[in-house]
């Protein structure tokens, strides 16, 4: 009660906090990131809609590296371990993270699963996020880079409709481009949308059937991994 006049009103006391609500996730992500850097692991958060070709990209990546690089993956899905099984068959050391109801991975889920994945000698860790163009963009996992798989079948204006995801992307893999002749879709229109959503619109045009762009993707990985670890050494 108000102590001054006995009016019966409660005293309202403001408490200034100014704290990031996801600070705890960010702390765990920083812990994961430190762990990756110390072990020479270049971690990629691979995001995209369901069916955008994330798993196919990773299968093609493993095939193109031809065993020259040690790869590991965590595959997030609401249900089933199908993607992790596909990646294991492709030669990638993989674990599934089944999230149940959750529409995204968070740093704690990744941290927990890392304890069950043999990371000895691993050079690339691909964290295949839950298929979703909204929620995964919000949660830092400790990755070095964000990569978004966007298939040409999703339409030309997806980057404008889901700007948060693309604003955070370091690279977009434009997948299934072998289907373009059947879709009546314009590559220029997709690139235009991307340039309005991404400050640095890095795009690799890719098709896992026939292998278009896969070498560019491997080159991007190798360059960025080298740069990430040069920075640590400096």
């Amino acid at each position: 009660m108000c102590q001054d006049c006995g009016c019966g009103d409660v005293n309202l006391v403001p408490l200034d906090v100014q704290q990031r609500i996801l600070a705890r996730n960010e702390d765990t992500a920083a812990h994961n990131r430190k762990h990756f850097l110390e072990r020479g692991i270049f971690a990629i958060n691979l995001m995209g809609s369901p069916g955008s070709g994330k798993t196919a990209v990773l299968e093609a990546t493993a095939a193109a590296f031809e065993g020259g690089r040690k790869l590991a993956a965590l595959a997030g899905d609401l249900a089933t371990e199908n993607d992790a099984n596909r990646l294991t068959r492709a030669g990638i050391r993989s674990r599934a993270i089944t999230t149940g109801e959750a529409c995204h991975l968070d740093a704690e889920l990744v941290h927990h699963e890392l304890h069950h994945l043999d990371l000895a000698g691993v050079e690339y860790l691909f964290i295949e996020n839950v298929g979703n163009l909204v929620c995964p963009a919000v949660y830092d996992l400790g990755q070095a880079k964000n990569v978004v798989a966007l298939s040409v079948t999703e339409g030309e204006d997806k980057p404008l409709k889901y700007p948060t995801m693309f604003a955070k992307a370091d690279l977009v893999l434009l997948t299934k481009v072998d289907l373009m002749p059947y879709l009546g879709i314009s590559l220029d229109a997709i690139l235009d949308s991307l340039a309005r959503a991404m400050p640095v619109p890095n795009v690799i045009v890719l098709s896992t059937r026939g292998g278009l762009g896969v070498d560019d993707w491997l080159g991007w990985l190798e360059r960025n991994r080298a740069m990430a670890f040069e920075e640590v050494m400096a």
């Binding site: 906090v17 990031r20 959503a197």
Partner: peptide
């Protein structure tokens, strides 16, 4: 386009990505 038309620099997000608890008001008796 997210690039400065004069300087040709990639744009920087100065505001709009915050998820912040600013303040709390408590009822104190």
């Amino acid at each position: 386009f997210l690039r400065c038309p004069s300087c040709n620099e990639p744009a920087h997000l100065a505001a709009g990505d915050e998820i912040v608890l600013q303040r709390i008001e408590l009822e104190v008796s």
